[in-house]
Computed example of a mutant assay.
Amino acid sequence: MIGNERHGLIGIIGNDLLRHGKLPLLLLIAVLVSAVLVVTTTHQTRRLTAEREQMVLEKDALDIEWRNLILEENALGDHSRVESIATEKLQMQHVDPSQENIVVQP
Rank of each mutant, 00 (worst) to 15 (best):
I64C: 02
V103H: 06
T42L: 10
N101H: 12
D78M: 02
I10E: 15
Q54H: 09
E88P: 00
I2Y: 11
Q105A: 13
H94C: 13
L71T: 03
T41G: 11
Q44T: 01
A50P: 08
R46A: 05
R81F: 03
E51I: 05
A75K: 10
H79Y: 14
M92L: 14
N15E: 11
D63K: 05
L28I: 04
T45I: 10
D63Y: 07
D96F: 03
M1R: 15
T49C: 09
S34F: 14
P106K: 10
V31K: 12
N68H: 06
L27D: 11
E53F: 12
N68L: 12
E5C: 07
T42H: 12
D96Q: 06
V33R: 10
L23A: 02
Q91Y: 03
A35Y: 10
I13H: 08
L26F: 04
I12K: 09
H43V: 07
H7N: 06
R52V: 13
L27R: 09
Q93V: 15
T87G: 10
E5L: 08
L32N: 12
V82P: 02
G14C: 04
D60R: 11
R19L: 03
A50C: 03
L90P: 00
Q44E: 09
A30V: 07
N68C: 01
G11M: 02
E53A: 14
H94T: 13
I12H: 02
P24M: 06
T87F: 08
I29G: 02
V56H: 04
L18G: 02
A50F: 04
Q105G: 00
T49A: 14
H94A: 08
E65G: 01
L37M: 14
R52G: 09
L76E: 13
H43L: 00
A61W: 03
I85L: 06
T42A: 10
L69T: 08
